[in-house]
Amino acid sequence: MAIVINLDMMLVKRKIKSNELAQRVGITEQNLSILKTGKAKAIRFTTLDAICKELDCQPGDILEYQ
């Protein structure tokens, strides 16, 4: 798939650990890992909204079309 998840990069930029983000967003670490590794087939708007809120970023900072 041409959609790339840049979540790892944003986590480093914001100096937030994966488990901490998962807890803040309200998803399991396993699901966050699925998202980070690009195995996810879809992302809910509510999840994207929560991630953007916690990382103070735009959806385009996390999702990229290559």
């Binding site: 998803i27 699901n31 966050l32 699925i34 998202l35 195995k39 996810a40 087939k41 879809a42 992302i43 809910r44 999840t47």
Partner: peptide, 8 residues
């Protein structure tokens, strides 16, 4: 179900 499992 597969789709559901991989929807975050």
């Amino acid at each position: 179900e597969d789709e559901q499992a991989y929807t975050i």
